[in-house]
Design a binder for these strands. Structure first.
Length: 485
RNA sequence: GGCGGUAUCGUCUAGGGGUCAGGAUAGCAGAUUCUCAUUCUGUUGACACGGGUUCGAAUCCCGUUUCCGCUACCA
């Protein structure tokens, strides 16, 4: 059996898209499950849209997701270079080989001529396929065209390849996720493989690269299905082994359109900026199409890899809804190691002067505020009262209530006896404080509402004992006094 | 338009000739807690449609429809 080698080949014309991340994940999982190699190739043929910033973003995002590659531009490998722009000298000779074998030919058509063909087809309501008028040009004709100053593109002859390797017009292959797929290739026009400027087109470059990099399985989005037929024919014409293909359904926005900026975040890095954990992101995105054989949905990438079977992936599109992502992210936040949480959370607390607390105290703050949150970005609001005086406008009414008028002054009376040197003691003291009013018919809940409102300006939040402990006696007294004014 | 793909709760999905069509999330209801949070419990909710085949179809077949993609000298 040949070595399993898969790849992800993003084009650095933007930050790493969540959809690309999912494709990368499935490739990674497939490689891990089958002891294969996962390869990263940067397809930067389109120089105008490429930037180093995007390349870095792709590297960083993939790493953050834990999708480490075995071969790639930075780590190298046997089949480099792994950046397409560094491979430009490779393509012409393969194109030439195809021309010599009769599977490709020079095309001198101008954009205007091509445009006219298309218009004509449109007028007659016929699907457009290239007319092949350059396929049988004589040397003489080519020479005179060249003299006119025309630079030829190279087109691939679909019909010749199809005839050479197949009995009918039908080209079929067995897709790893979709099963048998087929297409009448007489409906496909001869497409350009080398542009007149000497650079390869996508469909040609991928085949050459995948062939040279010995890619055994190509797992990608179903938007590539129609390209697959063209690519298979190129492999065959080149005399290369045809890899296995697997086409994944797309990720759609809730309105069933392509996931785009107007739906919110699209890049992995944007999700991270919004407070999503890469562990949660990767877990969530795996569940779009894949489902675990047991009922446990929260799993690490390694655990998923154990259970992964490309064949059992859903072949339909799936919609990206935040509901479940949010829930899952919350689960990860709740279970996260506290020092790790500290590292991840601090960037979201930039707005505040955190220097008045020790690292241990800050960790405690995070520990007591993490429970209800869904994204790390909520931390800014939820920890606000630890760093700033509370805004009492939202709880004005509550503070003016009868309960508050009894409960708050009394707190001031007894607070000196509270055990501020330990959180545990404070909990007891506050329990007694609640009991005192409970005896007077005020529910513990109500007592705490007033107290919490005075101290934090909120009606809900972290454990009150922890808040009082972390803020300290003087601050609490000061806040209650302010609230009573 | 042509070609290709797709179809199970709102969403992600499991299953698949005879199941109360299962789970997760969201929703709703209740319980616990100092907290309209968390957690826990319960609950609403689906086989796109029309024809076949069959004792029996959500499952198999045919057709329709939906939605998605492709239809470049972009990738």
């Amino acid at each position: 059996m040949t070595d399993i080698r898969v790849r992800i080949a993003p084009s650095p014309s933007g930050n790493l898209h969540i959809g690309t991340a999912r494709t990368a994940l499935f490739n990674y999982l497939f490689a891990k499950k089958n002891n294969g190699k996962f390869i990263l190739r940067i397809e930067d043929t389109d120089a105008e849209r490429t930037s180093q910033e995007y390349i870095d973003n792709i590297f960083d995002s993939l790493k953050a997701l834990g999708l480490n590659w075995d071969e790639g531009p930075d780590v190298g490998g046997e089949y480099g270079p792994y950046t397409q722009s560094e491979r430009f000298d490779l393509y012409p000779k393969y194109a030439q080989m195809l021309v010599e074998k009769g599977f490709a030919y020079e095309c001198f058509c101008t954009p205007e001529e091509l445009e006219a063909e298309k218009e004509e087809a449109g007028k007659n309501k016929q699907p457009y396929v290239y007319s092949k008028k350059c396929e049988n040009l004589t040397e003489k004709q080519k020479e005179s065209l060249r003299k006119e100053g025309r630079k030829p593109a190279i087109r691939f002859s679909i019909s010749k390849a199809q005839k050479a390797f197949h009995d009918s017009n039908i080209l079929a292959f067995d897709d790893l996720v979709k099963g048998n797929l087929h297409q009448d290739t007489s409906l496909i026009g001869d497409f350009v493989i080398m542009k007149s400027n000497g650079t390869p087109t996508y469909n040609f470059a991928v085949v050459i690269d995948d062939m040279l990099m010995k890619i055994s399985h190509i797992i990608r989005g179903e938007d590539h299905i129609s390209n697959t037929f063209k690519q298979i024919l190129i492999y065959e014409a080149l005399g290369a082994d045809v890899p296995r293909f697997g086409h994944l359904g797309m990720i759609l926005a809730p309105d069933r359109s392509k996931l785009s900026k107007r739906h919110g975040a699209t890049a992995v890095s944007e999700f991270v900026e919004k407070g999503y954990l890469t562990d949660a992101l990767v877990n969530f995105v795996a569940l779009l199409g894949w489902s675990p054989s047991d009922s446990e949905e929260i799993k690490t990438v390694d655990e998923i890899a154990q259970d992964f079977d490309i064949t059992k992936i859903s072949s339909s599109n799936s919609i990206f809804e935040y509901d479940k992502l949010n829930w899952m992210n919350g689960q990860y936040i709740k279970k996260m190691d506290l020092t790790k949480l500290y590292d991840y959370a601090m960037p979201f607390l930039k707005k505040y002067d955190t220097s008045k607390y020790t690292k241990e105290q800050l960790i405690r703050i995070l520990e007591v505020t993490r429970e209800p949150i869904t994204t790390l970005s909520e931390l800014e609001f939820d920890t606000q009262y630890f760093f700033e005086k509370p805004d009492l406008s939202e709880v004005k009414e509550l503070l003016e209530s009868e309960t508050s008028k009894k409960v708050l002054p009394y707190a001031l009376d007894v607070i000196n006896s509270w055990g501020f040197d330990s959180e545990e003691k404070l909990h007891e003291d506050m329990a007694n404080y609640r009991e005192y009013f409970k005896a007077q018919g005020i529910k513990p809940k109500e007592t705490m509402w007033s107290f919490r409102a005075a101290v934090t300006g909120r009606t809900r939040g972290a454990d009150m004992g922890a808040i009082v402990y972390l803020l300290g006696k003087d601050e609490i007294v000061d806040r209650i006094k302010t609230a009573l004014k």
